[in-house]
Design a protein around this nucleic acid. Structure first.
Length: 559
RNA sequence: UGGGGCGUAGCCAAGCGGCAAGGCACGGGACUUUGGAUCCUGGAUGCGCAGGUUCGAAUCCUGCCGCCCCAGCCA
């Protein structure tokens, strides 16, 4: 095997290498991605997906998709489809291995009976409050439940009757019998089953008792023949119980749980609860609002799955809590889009320009490259005529020293067309607002260069007034103003009031009027844009995915 | 005053006793019909701190400090 290849999985890959070397699990690697169907997947899940599926693939193994649906009171079917769609979109495939923890309810029940028979589980009649009291605290040991020493027969009988619905919700639970004095609170007789009369999205009302995560997860892994059960750091203290369960039940070739640090990004929220609040209270337009860190939001915004996977590859896998710079994701995005996005000219804030010495009614066509990074992308024609529009920002009446765009008396190049020189500035006499520029063009500069070879520092984009199509463009900024959205006492106070700016009078090249939803482009000198589902025939709507790097803006920000 | 985990550059992260990879960000420069892209180039005498072992320590030992997680019949 290529021992000098950069390893993607960090310390987890090392464990897998070792396991393969020692013949553990017969050299197999089999992972699983276990989402709970109670919400939408977000960028944080993308890391887990890349690790679970990616490591299986890298080791010639398989990865199952398993919905962890052990709590019917907070789970719904509607999430199952969106989760599947998001994983597929990211580029991963679970083949025919789509499972649900609820598929195993019968077997899980049988294992529980076995646990009771081995004297390792008991039915407890304490209320939830009492269980909490008996559990003790971080610094004090817990006390044994008075029901802890019931006979195997009584436990068997009670547990069967729990299943058959003889008791009220919450009246009794099944608990593991481990050690109420353990310094690890998870080991203080954790609850295995609770009574819950809630219809389950898959099993209906077949069951009124449901297993907890702690109990169902290790066994589900074992049932599926999982070898490496990868999860996030907060489950680390559950590992002793994971091992205890499989050991007590004498499961052969028990899977092993390995924990890694979850992904955090600056300016980004990854709390399901808080994201839900943003949606429910209307701070965003929905789970797929292009400002949301959900995979559906990122998809609508225009992010490529490749860029997200590249991010995950670059951040590595480790156990240290970390916050990755959002800039790295944006870098991965630009790197990807730069290679593939076709270029177009789009004027977001139009300023009318009349070329005074250009013949009225004349139209010329110029060839221009679709993507200078990729000659095979070919060329297209752009139109030029007497009246054009340029970006308002590309003209300054009183420009600073280093501004090399258009200004009174200055010459610039119109991309792929002509050099023009500004002769006159027309203002609205009432407001003083610049409404129009009068320029002259140099006929010898056709195509963007002159025989005398004179240097023109600035090149700006434009559209021909009579050819351009009107479009709506939505500019997005970070949803939060603070690097850490959780900073302070209320994350809502950190919301960026200007996270969305809608521009309704943009003018774009005519070809863009037929853009298909999801198509991505580079608008020259602006950034990358994606056609939004809100587009209508003849009236396209574009989302700005990410701007181009802007060293000019950076220079301005310094002053 | 319990247990578990983690601390290498602004942010990630390699390193596994032999003289601190790489990426992002940042700074310089070249080139450029996108102030984009691309290409050069710069940064830890130092690896949380303090001791110790060793010819040699980010790597081993001891002590300390800091941060994160755990007291759901959530996952």
């Amino acid at each position: 095997m290529g021992e000098d290849k950069p390893k993607f999985g960090g310390f987890i890959q090392e464990i897998m290498d070792q396991d393969k070397a020692t013949g553990k699990y017969g050299g197999r690697v089999h992972t699983r991605f276990p989402p709970e169907p109670n919400g939408y997947l977000h960028i944080g899940h993308a890391k887990a997906i890349c690790i679970d599926f990616g490591l299986a693939e890298a080791n010639g193994g398989l990865c199952n998709l398993r919905f962890d649906d052990t709590n019917p009171s907070k789970e719904e079917v509607e999430y199952v489809e969106s989760i599947k769609e998001d994983i597929r979109w990211l580029g991963f495939d679970w083949g025919d291995r789509l499972f649900f923890a609820s598929d195993y309810f019968d077997r899980l029940y049988e294992y529980a009976v076995e646990l009771i028979k081995r004297g390792k589980a008991y039915v407890c009649d304490l209320t939830a409050d009492e269980i909490r009291e008996y559990r003790g605290t971080l610094t004090e040991p817990g006390r044994n439940s008075p029901y802890r020493d019931r006979s195997v027969e009584e436990n068997l009988d009670l547990f069967r009757r729990m299943k058959e619905g003889e008791f009220a919700d919450g009246a009794r639970v099944l608990r593991a019998k481990i050690d109420m004095a353990s310094p690890n609170i998870v080991m203080r007789d954790p609850v295995l089953y609770r009574i819950l009369r809630v219809p389950h999205h898959r099993t209906g009302d077949t069951w009124c008792i449901y297993p907890t995560y702690d109990y169902a997860h290790p066994l589900s892994d074992a049932i599926e023949g999982i070898t490496h059960s990868l999860c996030t750091l907060e489950f680390e203290e559950h590992r002793p119980f994971y091992d205890w369960l499989l050991d007590t039940l004498e499961i052969p070739e028990p899977p092993q749980q390995i924990e890694f640090a979850r992904l955090n990004l600056t300016y980004t929220l990854t709390s399901k609860r808080k994201l839900r609040k943003l949606v429910d209270e209307g701070y965003v337009r929905g789970w797929d609002d292009p400002r949301m860190p959900t995979l559906s939001g990122l998809r609508r915004r225009g992010y490529t799955p490749e860029s997200i996977r590249e991010l995950c590859a670059r951040i590595g896998v480790a156990k240290a809590n970390s916050v990755v710079d959002l800039g790295l994701l944006e870098h991965c995005l630009r790197e990807d889009l730069n290679k593939r996005a076709l270029r177009y000219m789009a004027v977001l804030r139009p300023l009318k320009v009349v070329i005074a010495n250009y013949p009225e009614g004349q139209v010329e066509e110029f060839e221009t490259e679709n993507n200078p990074e990729d000659p095979s992308a070919g060329t297209r024609t752009v139109h030029f005529s007497r009246v054009i529009y340029i970006e308002r920002d590309d003209f300054m009446e009183d420009p600073p020293k280093k501004f090399f765009r258009l200004a009174p008396g200055r010459e610039v190049r119109l991309k792929s067309a002509y050099y023009i020189t500004c002769q006159d500035v027309v203002k609205d006499p009432a407001t003083g607002e610049i409404v129009e520029l009068h320029c002259t063009y140099d006929p010898l500069s056709r195509g963007g260069a002159t025989p005398d070879g004179r240097r023109v520092k600035g090149t700006i984009h434009f559209v021909s007034a009579s050819h351009a199509v009107r479009a709506e463009v939505r500019l997005y900024d970070n949803l939060f103003l603070t690097e850490d959205p959780n900073e302070g006492d209320d994350f809502l106070k950190n919301l960026n009031p200007n996270s969305l700016e809608v521009l309704t009078d943009c003018l774009v090249e005519p070809a863009l009027s037929t853009a298909k939803v999801g198509d991505r482009f580079q608008f020259l000198r602006h950034g990358y844009f994606c056609a939004d589902p809100d587009s209508t025939p003849g009236r396209p709507v574009f989302n700005r995915i990410v701007s181009l790097r802007d060293t000019w803006q950076k220079l301005m920000d310094k002053d």
